[in-house]
């Protein structure tokens, strides 16, 4: 594996192997060892053409725990948004000798463009591209589900996961749908019809417009963030109505299965898609998602950046 662009690019076995690796890395980091020499001398660039402090910090922590050198290239308000092309940026990174580029970009497919082009030779990690995918988030979500529901090293066969909210614009949803169904979970999307894409029928999911009828039967409720700009684009009448039908509040939480968990990729709009009581409840694993993010991203960097010379014919 050279790049991490889309969940669609790898097999179930590969996905499980990343989760298992993350599991061992989490144990190492939980113990006395805070820093591993694994990627010493390798350079990882965080290229963020869109704000995302939490994802950047998570990747940065992961890279540093593996002793990689990290360069943060926050392109928002810098050259990329001032018209420097992705090509020129990529060639700059190549000249700096980047072994891997972790890219967050507002354009769907930006990571793939970077990987497919001849502009640079390093590994490309998609840290969220437009409304396309966010594979590391899906991996950490799957990791969290597996760990929290005590599934050890198995897949997610037999579990039901509800993904609730703005599926249309959500890269987190797209990656999770692919990964969770690959791992054997049943995925149900719950959203107003305006926030489901045309063509959703071809996805390996079932669909509901009624959150109350879904909540009692699922093991995981994954809430998606509602972007402020959706309010003005007539996807729903107003925030109050959205919250009434698709928000997760304490009343709805009461009807959840015993042991079922609540997830959210963050950042949350408390009071809109999720109430403060739910976000802070014992069912919420939201902060655990953040913790697991570092281990999962360490595993991703480990898998992508070891053996690189082998693929290049170095052995």
């Amino acid at each position: 594996m050279r790049h991490l662009l889309s969940i669609a690019d790898f097999s179930k076995a590969e996905a499980i192997s990343i989760l298992d690796t993350a599991n061992e890395l989490a144990r190492v980091s939980d113990g006395a060892v805070k820093k591993l020499p694994t990627l010493r001398g390798r350079t990882i660039v965080n290229l963020f053409a869109e704000d995302s402090t939490r994802t950047r910090i998570s990747f940065e922590a992961a890279a540093k725990r593996l002793s990689a050198d990290v360069i943060n290239f926050s392109a928002k308000g810098s050259s990329v948004s001032k018209g420097e092309s992705l090509k020129d940026t990529a060639m700059t990174l190549q000249a700096m000798g980047a072994d891997a580029v972790v890219i967050r970009h507002f354009a769907s497919g930006a990571a793939q463009r970077l990987a497919d082009s001849q502009w640079m030779s390093g590994s490309v990690v998609n840290a969220g591209d437009g409304t396309h995918e966010h594979p590391s988030q899906a991996l950490l979500d799957a990791f969290t589900i597996r760990k929290h529901l005590g599934l050890g090293k198995s897949d997610l066969e037999g579990l039901s996961v509800a993904i609730v909210g703005d599926v249309l614009h959500s890269r987190v949803a797209r990656s999770n749908i692919l990964l969770l169904s690959k791992l054997g979970a049943k995925v149900v999307l719950v959203a107003p019809p305006t926030l489901l894409p045309v063509g959703v029928e071809s996805w390996p999911v079932s669909i509901s417009y009624d959150l109350d009828s879904v909540i009692p039967f699922v093991d995981v409720v994954m809430m998606l963030r509602v972007q402020q700009e959706r309010m003005t684009e007539m996807y729903f009448p107003n925030a109050r109505e959205y919250s009434r039908y698709f928000g997760l509040n304490s009343d709805r939480m009461k009807s959840m299965k015993p042991g079922a968990i609540v997830m959210h990729p963050g950042p949350m709009n408390r009071g809109l898609e999720i109430s403060a009581e739910v976000a802070d409840s014992s069912r919420s694993v939201i902060t655990e998602q953040v913790t697991n993010g570092v281990s999962v991203r360490m595993a991703i960097l480990y898998v992508l950046l070891t053996g690189g010379a082998l693929e290049a014919g170095g052995n």
Binding site: S108, H132, R171, V198, G199, S202, W203
Partner: peptide, 18 residues
């Protein structure tokens, strides 16, 4: 809009042109 609205645009996360 970026491409034909349908299965492919849904998967690619590109805004549909219906």
């Amino acid at each position: 809009s970026q491409m034909n609205e349908g299965e492919i645009s849904a998967r690619l996360g590109l805004k549909g042109w219906p």
